[in-house]
Design a protein around this nucleic acid. Structure first.
Lengths: 143, 143
DNA sequence: TATTGTTATACTCTATAACTATA
DNA sequence: TATAGTTATAGAGTATAACAATA
């Protein structure tokens, strides 16, 4: 037994998506270490970047994460790294609107560029047309 | 702010693959709870099913998991659930060949059927041709 | 000297329960 | 009463270091 038969698992989209996700994360981690951003942290920063004033509840809803797991991250970004500001929400006194500072915007831009480069590297075996098709088919499932 | 702009993240295959993977796992868990199999456990059982005599080292290599994380799982399958047997490896005295028992084979067959049904449900919005294309493009990345 | 399987352990990620302030 | 944000905590899941037996 030297060759392993994985043909059944290969018939499952869930298996393929998981393998690709793990491969993407494996190359994402060292590349984004320079920005001290892990996958979920990057997603949060990018969403605040493109949605100034977004609330933590909205972030949780969009990214399917639990509110308690966001608290420490946001506090760290605000107090230790000076990347975000939390301002009172204009219409809801309970909520806080999230905004990037100038430093946060600069980091978000660089990090998004690096993330795009990483994704291009992960999908290097695909043609441009194949990559577009893959993005579209994945969205059709999760969106 | 009621609509959240996720257009940047949607340009990343890594993001899409992660979202699809999480969606697949979310429906996998309750469905496979009847068989007491979580995703990695199912992959291990299915690989032993289709590769009788496979070693734990090979499983780790194929599934990208660490040996220590397999030990408890295999012991549980052997001693508590009677799903697998470990026999001396024919040519390597250090290794053990993994085999399914009759009960293990029956469970593997049922679990694989359920996993296929789950995957069909997760990809229900895709046509048969789209699903084949998606499987092929994912393999092109991770294989 | 390298590898298989194992033990013990630590770290990361994610989930649940309960609280406060406001709606 | 319901929701936003928070705290404390528990549980998965995964990773590292070191060991005995065999190659």
């Amino acid at each position: 037994m030297d060759q392993v038969d994985t043909s059944f698992l290969q018939t499952l989209v869930g298996y393929g998506a998981r393998r690709v996700s793990l491969a993407a994360i494996a190359s994402f981690l060292p590349r984004m270490a320079a920005y001290e951003l892990r996958p979920v942290e990057f997603s949060v920063l990018s969403l605040i970047h493109h949605n100034p004033g977004i609330t933590s509840r909205q972030l949780c809803s969009v990214l399917n994460i639990q509110p308690p797991n966001l608290v420490g991250m946001l506090q760290h970004y605000e107090k230790k790294r000076g990347l975000i500001e939390r301002r009172p929400h204009p219409s809801d006194g309970r909520a806080l609107g999230l905004h990037l500072t100038t430093a946060g915007r600069q980091l978000a831009r660089k990090a998004e560029h690096a993330a795009s480069q990483n994704d291009a590297q992960v999908t290097a075996r695909l043609s441009a047309a194949e990559r577009r098709t893959l993005l579209r088919l994945l969205e059709k499932i999760y969106l």
